[in-house]
Design a protein around this nucleic acid. Sequence first.
RNA 1: GGCACCGUGGCGGAGUGGCUACGCAGCGGCCUGCAAAGCCGUGUACACCGGUUCGAUUCCGGUCGGUGCCUCCA
Length: 459
Amino acid sequence: MRTIRIHDTASGALQELRPRVPGQVGIYACGPTVYNRIHVGNARPFVVYALLKRFLQHEGFEVTLVANLTDVNDKIYAAAVRQGTTSTALAEEMSAHYRADTELLGLGRPDVEPLATTSMPGIIALIEDLVARDAAYEAEGDVYFRVRSDARYGSLSRRDVDQMDQGEGDDPVGLELKQDPLDFALWKANKPGEDTAWDSPWGRGRPGWHIECSAMAEEALGLGFEIHGGGNDLVFPHHENEAAQTRCARDHELAQIWMHNGMLQLRGEKMAKSVGNVTALHEAVAEVSRDALLLLFCSAHYRQPLAYSEDTIEQARGGIRRLREIARTLVPGPSPEALAPERDAFLDALADDFNTARGLGHLWTWVRDANRRTAAGEQVGDEHLREMLGILALDNVLDAPDDDGPDDAALGLLRERDAARAERDWGRADELRDALAAAGWTVRDGADGAELVRAEDTA
RNA sequence: GGCACCGUGGCGGAGUGGCUACGCAGCGGCCUGCAAAGCCGUGUACACCGGUUCGAUUCCGGUCGGUGCCUCCA
């Protein structure tokens, strides 16, 4: 079990992972608001935290990963009205899409996937506690959080409350009810056009955006859990508010480490629904392949912006091809001890703020050294590589495809070509190679004769 | 305007006070009938200007440029 360090946004420094209960780690990752299908950018945190969980498990930790879905929200109401459906139907439809789309990544499910709509008792109880402590107040059926009641407000995003632009752009009603423009809604009274509402001590209504996460995270993981994650666009206001709510209600911090991933960028700009430059996740998986997409996500440090472009996608595809290639020459079993330092360096890199990019450098060095040994006639065991790729959920590329090998027709052509080559009839041999290529097979001539490789693995 | 982050060789992308990251592409070579794959070799890279230092891409200050957030956003 290595010492794990993770960058904490609140302190701006690496923090050692120190679980409340030794060996047990809770991670809460903010998921999407389900009003349309998620895009590749939304997949980055899903991937980062799923892989972090795998790495921590590899290191011997027991990990509980919680990823919520926001299924009640202004955006959902608005989209439902536009589409002539109910917000409940829309949220359910998009939640199902979200599960199916993320399932395409082949990373399993988070251990808990709470919904705001099924967490109302906890949400309401938390708001009641805040009101009882005078950290929140009711106003005509709304409840607002009193930002200035939290002396540490702004500490996560390093903002000075008195320097902040004040005002809530699109909610003039709320502005009148607030005692301070900085305050934000914990509970919103039901309004015309909103087709869902829940009973509360303040009348029928629904929760604000931030309170659900405070409630659901505490319910699933307790207070002071190890890692709270999400995209860095959530640092303010979402996570700042989440932290403030729990702090004021519980006199305890919600999480120990606030971890934030960088944005996926398309042509230098954040990929976002609001920018309108999105590629749907399910389309990206279909076009890029699940394997290359994961490798692409690992190619840069999680905190850095990641360019999603023809070039970076092609490079990721090339990486997968290279792995498939070496898989053909490795044998099952232990790897040479001399290669262990690269495997260890890979693991050390992940332990140091989950630096997958640095880790991959060592993985590629391992691959090169293994290829060198193979070329020298050594049988190289795949154990190290399988271990490293397993953490990245890419060990599948080492396994032969389940579908059938070359059919009789292809093998016949190969035999014919062997015969032509034996007669040094190069013209005929090349024709047959072209015929095999047309049938989807790439010919590899080696010391032990020719073999066929699926063209999709080499193209 | 405020806060945060970033500017590394053709591209992507780590990292470090002095020692090859790594990958892709290119070039040369080995192997090969040719090719593919693999291997070997190959790049006066650290935005600019000052400062600290024996020495800075790395630390400090400034300039320029970019990205994110500033109550919709992963």
